[in-house]
Design a protein around this nucleic acid. Structure first.
Lengths: 146, 146
DNA sequence: TGGGACCATATGGGCGTCAATGGGAAGCGG
DNA sequence: CCGCTTCCCATTGACGCCCATATGGTCCCA
């Protein structure tokens, strides 16, 4: 397993901490990532979490756009203004800050969602609804197993 | 036998495990597949199970789109966030998780259905009904429990 | 041709390990 | 001096790994 896949829901404890699923931690360790970069998803009410490469990927996307376009401007606002660095504690937990709560609606539980090269934090119900909507929206991507 | 063919129904034990039919395991072994990728079928209430190639087929579809587009984002949500990696135990069994139960309606028995390059997990009666419907010609394809 | 030994699969369950969680106590900053 | 954070340790419950048993089918041999 070399990428972030599948999803899992964990509880937030009384101190506001939540365990990152072990498979995700294993991917982070394999990639030698200690500092986590968190930013708001551009489409969904979710927080994306990844290593420094995640930030760089977004920055390249911004750089490739017209620097004076409203899109690039807005994206920079989100990426640079809305991003946060985070660390895990010794047990592999992270603090769920108000920054995360406000944007996602997370209160007592966090759903971790793999996105291949990064993962995301979702309010469980919101994730479920987004999945149903995505499935209904594009019922078939045009891919049918041969 | 180099493809997944025919179907078989096995019981789930008290620990929530079920044996994968030996012919299917033989195909997996022949293809050197140890990690199984499970994905919700796009049409039927069934879970598709295959090797990494199953995942890669969907990932190629995602890669062909603009990586920052809402469409690619939604597809990744389904494929990466909705997919699950699984391993078989030494006896060739897999755990039937709530993820599988909720989507398929499986409770006590699992019907394994060969689909050539992958296989599927069905609730036995649902599979039977889908077969009857398919045999009847035009049918209630796409019908899924609300 | 019928009986029996053999074999593979499916199934059941014990046990150890690890992850998720909870909470105490010390360190740092306000 | 007080509150929040960080480090550390305890608990427990799930899962992986292992071995045991049953069941049905096949092959061989009398």
């Amino acid at each position: 397993m070399n990428r972030f896949l599948s999803n899992a829901t964990n509880r937030i404890d009384t101190k506001g901490r939540v365990s990152v699923p072990a498979p995700f931690r294993a991917v982070l360790a394999q990639r030698n990532v200690q500092e986590l970069y968190c930013l708001q998803d551009l489409v969904f009410p979710a927080i994306s979490v990844g290593g420094p490469d995640l930030l760089e990927r977004y920055e390249r996307q911004i750089a490739s756009a017209d620097p004076f376009s409203p899109e690039a401007n807005a994206m920079s606002l989100l990426v640079h203004g809305g991003g946060v660095y985070m660390r895990l504690d010794a047990e592999g937990r992270l603090m769920v800050t108000d920054f995360i709560r406000d944007f996602t609606g997370i209160t007592t539980e966090v759903t971790f969602v793999g996105r291949s090269d990064h993962f995301q934090l979702w309010q469980p119900q919101a994730f479920h609804e987004a999945q149903v909507a995505a499935r209904a929206g594009r019922a078939t991507f045009g891919v049918r197993p041969a």
